[in-house]
Design a protein around this nucleic acid. Structure first.
Lengths: 201, 201, 201, 201
DNA sequence: CATGAATGAGGCTTCATTCAT
DNA sequence: AATGAATGAAGCCTCATTCAT
């Protein structure tokens, strides 16, 4: 039934992003999104199943495009260590370039109902796979420990990046995310590093 | 006006925890919480300002008690490295021991309105201070790099633990969190370690 | 936001009048008014800001129309004495013709909250101006004393008419208001009279 | 059951007067009155049937005392014309001396529910009888028209005094009520006068 | 006599979704 | 395809009154 494509499809998603960023998730009514997109309330239901679908599609479109781009760019990088560096850069650049999107995906959409959160989770899986790929490549290259648990490591990387961005937004973007890339990369690479260090020993 | 103490105060907070864990944040009506606590709806308002206050208090009581306990236990540990280990243990133990609380604090309360989220954020600050204390101690001890950025590092630690717990809940607590303590500790300590490794060099 | 016009706008106001007259102010719930108006509860909020707005609008529409009509009719009367007679007639006719409206405006709406009472007061100001006009005209004509205090006199006229109507309603409309016009007119005119004049004679 | 007498009985009535005058009828909760009277909530129910009873008793005590005093003082005045003058004086003095009481009886208690209004109405009947007595006496004396309708005339007098006081309160007691006694008396006496009499002259 | 903690019924309003035009 | 007026379910909170102490 829902068209899921076309000029108005995109207009609605962009309007939703702007409205949520400006008014917050709890004040982003369908009618407000419709007004912002310059369509009638009912028109939204010609392009989306329901409001949840708008939100999931918003995340899917924005994040999906980012993941695809990330996959492409990472493919052009040789070593896992450099890929990780590139990943952090891409992650931060992506959100630093679009403050509205950052607010919506990091803060507002997380208040959504279980249905939307589930949709978001599924989209994020692809991103986690990208991270897994880098970790596994590093293990194969021998620059990361052989006994790394990929899932644990992936959660460290994703959890850290996610918390870093959220924190940056909560502080009103007062500093530059990109300035933290080097330090985070070092923390990750040292943490996963194959060399001597076994501080716990 | 609100009493904020007493037998029923605790009964209401515990009832709220159970109801939210079972039905989800969006289906945790005041009347349902009251029924679960075996008090009248109105009684809740003798102990709390409003529904938001119940939720914030729930987080505050549970998390506050945990943070206090953590502070005490960490004070009895000598080295920063061991303190960090202890912190991960406490964090995981705390939530693994009480699946309901884990669901409520990690998943459900994050869907709450801005007011509640603000209250939660303020309580979490104390926890972040605890993490900062460990990082700074490690730097003083010389086991962590002198050029660590405490805030960046704190976000790595908290973000990683948070993501790890959330992930564990989403996977229906199918494995044991405590089994991941060693590996995470190693990732952190190596990441922050003062020794050799400068993978980026 | 609220439309404040249209077929349903009037249907809701009329329904509110009937419901309040029948059940009393304190038992006139929005849902009851909606049912009486044959619209959904939510529809009321397409035409009015809130319940208070319905009540103020009800008074404003009914009283506003009456005042406008009164202004017109009085303009066609030459002398102040006859205008006063006409005013009493109009005042009584208006309320005697519509018992429900009389009950609502004289009895029920006076129990309303401060917000509504304030709205009512502002609308009544226009009516008091009409009375002032008559008194001033009579003074210019020389049929009323030159040393009349317009405000004091206005309060006598309005207070008397108001009390008379309220009393009539409390006695269940058992007699005819119109039968009291002559006597009241005589009391007013003699009271204000510049000398002996017995205008009614 | 209710005692209706004693030190606390009066304390509660006085507290109710103060609370209603300060916070308004709609914010005068039983618990607030109890606190103001320095008794427990439940104690109020040892002296009064219910909240309505408190309000009716408040009106009854204050107004009843006034009416008794008025009856006494008027008995010492010879002519109806002078009695009417005295009545206006007493009415205004009574309320001008106690602004709180004026606000409570003229404004706030009129917002009360039908039960209370009914109680108030019954108490006022005694006052209306006093007015009737003056009018009838004046007719017997021949200074008021023989064809006066006592009820119509009574409503003019009461309605006018009532509206005058209400208006004075709404204008924040900015002027002196007592300054209007002469003019109102003249309006009444001329209005009722059997001929031209200018009683005030 | 006095207390005050506990009760629980009741209503205004929002907003995602539909469907006649 | 597009509109937007209409729908109606659902929940937080207040406060008069009670009754065990």
């Amino acid at each position: 039934m829902a068209k899921r494509t076309g000029e108005k499809y995109e207009a609605i998603i962009d309007a939703a992003t702007r409205v949520i960023a400006e008014y917050g998730y709890h004040n982003a009514q369908v009618s407000k999104i419709a007004r912002e997109a310059k369509v009638a309330d009912g028109t939204i239901y010609l392009y989306f199943e329901n409001k949840d679908d708008v939100l999931i599609s918003l995340f899917s479109e924005k994040m999906g495009a980012f993941i695809s781009r990330a996959e492409e760019e990472l493919a052009q990088v040789d070593s896992a260590v450099d890929q990780l560096y590139k990943l952090i850069c891409l992650h931060f650049e992506h959100l630093e370039k679009d403050h509205q999107l950052a607010i919506v995906t990091q803060i507002e959409l997380r208040q959504s109902n279980p249905e939307v959160r589930k949709g978001i989770g599924e989209i994020l899986k692809r991103y986690l796979d990208v991270i897994d790929g880098i970790v596994e490549k590093g293990m194969r290259e021998g620059v990361f420990r052989q006994d790394l648990d990929v899932r644990i490591t992936r959660r460290m990387i994703f959890g850290t990046l996610d918390e870093t961005v959220t924190s940056w937004i909560m502080k009103d973007h007062k500093y530059r995310l990109m300035d933290q890339v080097d330090e985070l990369h070092r923390l990750f690479v040292n943490g996963m590093g194959s060399q001597r260090n076994d501080a716990n020993a």
